[in-house]
């Protein structure tokens, strides 16, 4: 069953045409890698699929609903309720501890402080990062940062996890660990995962690869 779909979407930044009519369909529970050389538009495709930005033409559907025509507030709600995001370098709030960073989405969702902290710690434990729960991001290694970031993305039990080069800043052993934990947790959750990467070994963790070249899907490789 198709959960997330882009139909002939186009997006330009000034004169640069980042996406030129991309169509992709992603099934529920699938783990998909979007690959392509740098500048191919793969990050832009992820931003459009996740409702962070809207394409100029074409349609984006999630769970049978068209989302590119929704207003910012509705898309924000959708991202909060159904999506989780992981980016390169963690992008954690530097002043908060690891546990508070993970609890943040729960707090924004209106949950209590203690309750959120308990859930956050449980997730840190699953990500093998409970030992750094009270450390600030500045004190963490790259691999620890990403594991905390993964915990933050999964803590709300999202339907889809979007990861943009989640292991880009890590060496291969640390990267593999992060990826393994992310995919394992996503499988347990039943979450769909969309990973943008230029690393073939990361792509090999996915069930399927979508190759983006010059802003177009160059053949969906099954």
């Amino acid at each position: 069953m198709t959960l997330l779909e882009a139909r002939r979407i186009e997006k330009a930044f000034g004169r640069t045409r980042a996406l030129r009519g991309v169509s992709v369909a992603i099934g529920s529970g699938e783990i998909v890698a979007i690959t392509g050389p740098s500048g191919s538009g793969k990050s832009t495709l992820l931003h459009c699929l996740s409702g962070i930005m809207c394409p100029e033409t074409g349609e984006v559907h999630y769970d049978g609903r068209r989302i590119d025509t929704l207003d910012e507030a509705a898309r924000t709600r959708l991202r909060r309720e159904a999506f989780g995001v992981v980016f390169q370098f963690g992008r954690l709030v530097p002043e908060l501890t690891a546990a508070e960073n993970v609890a943040l989405p729960l707090l924004f969702g209106g949950n209590g402080r203690e309750e959120s902290a308990t859930v956050a710690r449980a997730w840190l434990e699953r990500m093998d990062a409970l030992d750094v729960a009270d450390a600030r991001p500045g004190e963490l290694s790259g691999g620890q940062l990403q594991r905390v970031a993964v915990a933050r993305a999964l803590v709300t039990g999202p339907k889809v996890v979007f990861a943009d080069e989640p292991t880009g800043a890590l060496d291969s052993v640390a990267g593999e660990r992060v990826l393994g934990l992310l995919l394992e947790a996503a499988r347990v959750n039943g979450s769909t995962v969309v990973i943008v990467t230029h690393d073939n070994r990361v792509a090999a963790h996915a069930d399927r690869e979508i190759v983006v070249r010059d802003g177009a899907a160059a053949g969906v490789v099954v």
């Binding site: 073939n200 090999a204 963790h205 490789v221």
Partner: peptide
């Protein structure tokens, strides 16, 4: 090139699965 890429990646997927 695309077909070869798919074949290579499929093999890499098998190997990755074995590693896991």
């Amino acid at each position: 090139l695309l077909r070869q890429r798919a074949a290579h990646l499929e093999r890499m997927r098998e190997l990755t699965a074995r590693k896991n």
